[in-house]
Design a protein around this nucleic acid. Sequence first.
DNA 1: CCATCGTGGTGTATCGATAAACCGCGCTGG
DNA 2: CCAGCGCGGTTTATCGATACACCACGATGG
Lengths: 342, 342
Amino acid sequence: MPATMSDVARAAGVSVMTVSNVLTGRKRVGEDTRRRVLAAVDDLGYELNLTARHLRAGRTNTVALVVPRFDHAYFGELAARLARRLEASGRHLVVEQSGASREGELKALTLARLHLYDGVLLSVVGMTPDDVARLRTTVPVVLLGEQDMPDRFDQVRMDNVEGARLATAHLLATGSRRVAAVGGSRSGRGMTYLRTLGWRRAHEEAGLMADDALVLPAGQSDLADGREAVRRLVAAGAPFDGVFAFTDTLATGVLAGLAEAGLRVPDDVQVVGFDNLDASEFLVPALTTVDPGHDAMTDHALRLLDRLIERAPGTDPGTAVEPEHVTGPVSLAVRGTTRHTA
Amino acid sequence: MPATMSDVARAAGVSVMTVSNVLTGRKRVGEDTRRRVLAAVDDLGYELNLTARHLRAGRTNTVALVVPRFDHAYFGELAARLARRLEASGRHLVVEQSGASREGELKALTLARLHLYDGVLLSVVGMTPDDVARLRTTVPVVLLGEQDMPDRFDQVRMDNVEGARLATAHLLATGSRRVAAVGGSRSGRGMTYLRTLGWRRAHEEAGLMADDALVLPAGQSDLADGREAVRRLVAAGAPFDGVFAFTDTLATGVLAGLAEAGLRVPDDVQVVGFDNLDASEFLVPALTTVDPGHDAMTDHALRLLDRLIERAPGTDPGTAVEPEHVTGPVSLAVRGTTRHTA
DNA sequence: CCATCGTGGTGTATCGATAAACCGCGCTGG
DNA sequence: CCAGCGCGGTTTATCGATACACCACGATGG
């Protein structure tokens, strides 16, 4: 039975409102009364109930980040960056998991869990643009999706096609001729499709033919999938001298697979990843990878979210801000898994 | 202006309570009325306000995990495991970050409490036993700390000393004679101290002398710290033929440092980590590491938390459950960074 | 033939904090 | 001499959902 505000009020011989005022400092309170209240608070071990405050005030100073999975390094780093920024503005980040499934994401959204937060950053993976379009929520939401989502929402994306093109072009420019696309897929609209597109485009630009047999899909376990992809390539006897792995985690698995197969990196096979995770620089050899401009994306996401949150009080549909779709700048971090020349 | 329950009630021509009953299914409602209500809900795009429900019900079906940092693989994996278990019992996990500092942990705990989570799993790092002892909380809390905390709280720990002893003993048994302790510290009570203790103990048991000069502290950035430790060892010209890194992340950095220095693993230098992260198996060579019995720890933590949550309604101090301190079983996952024989 | 029960609903108090209105009181200025 | 005001509070209404008591009405049973 936690102490409530009126317990404190009674103990201090004042009204609840006075206790509230002392605690929030929103109104002047006599020094004497103030001390009595604080003493009572201390005495009863009282703690403010944020739920109640939220109900009344409509603000939580808390932003949620909904990610597909807790155990993906990319999202961990994303969360850390966001938390740092939010902390600076006196706010708070909590992370929730959607389970990387369409159902999970929908549940995370419709379950009205959203109302617990001032705003939500939603990493869309499983949901289709249609699902998103159907969302009826009044809570400020910014999508961190990979694919292009309906205009109704703000969205921050990576430039998947360009990043993939950069990665593949670099492999081709440094001498690789048969570049596998690990994590790719020939259909859909998601990240995998877009990066496959970039991979294809780089081939075209180099006047080369992309071989669809080198497109290897990934499943749920990136590390194992990356290794498995190499195993399959080797088993199939398909010649390959380069790998564009669609995430750094997949690339890590790929490196393991190559080592297992006795293939040297970058001498026999060059490898490029995507994400530029903290750990990638420390792999042996250090991973060449696409840097999706983390900081720029973080900045954009928070700017868009704040814009929505500011507007919230009025919520005048007339003055509705025009949703923005921004795309981060990509670049290539060249390291040890690729050669410097052909 | 989001639609409220009474908006729905008005639209459907029923009372608020009936709407509530339809939505929660807690009471029987006539099929006809039910349909009208659902239609109105759909029509107005109504979303349940969890904040209000929580305020009234006093339950959230949500458990919070407070970790030092979002961007540490260990905590990501921990969160994923916990979420999986909680999901199975119809509950929900949210993750918060404390910033690895004493203040951060205290603040996070306060916030967590205020948010009316049903329970909190707190990864203690910065707080001292004294801080913990001072905590006055009515919310179910289970500590996931490294060091031993006051009896008043349930706590799940790794067997740090034994794990470190195992790791070091393995290095010594397979021929290493000068084993660096990367991430170690000669004082304090925390994880670093305990693992240093295990490192020392293994030496004693082998009748060898542990050299304090081989204890290298780590800072905030494990990956860089691991690499830096090797650089320092090499620069100092201190001979060493084994490394016990206090986390797998440090070990990853160590491997990078060794590669940079042209030292072969495991031929010139053997390496053992601690944590058995998912990625560790995929490093090249695959990392030998201490497995802290993740599943057992998860099970224990949730069992203890549930016990506290069950008891919560009554909260009779007389029937208070006796707090438990459990320690997970550690074992060694032997892989490629160590040899099989001396 | 009346007491009892089940069905499908309604009314009201309540969770804890807070915004806004209000209220004595002593002081000041015109 | 009185309107006006700053100070230090108190009262009241409210946020949105839900627990609980209650009620009308028809069916059931002994």
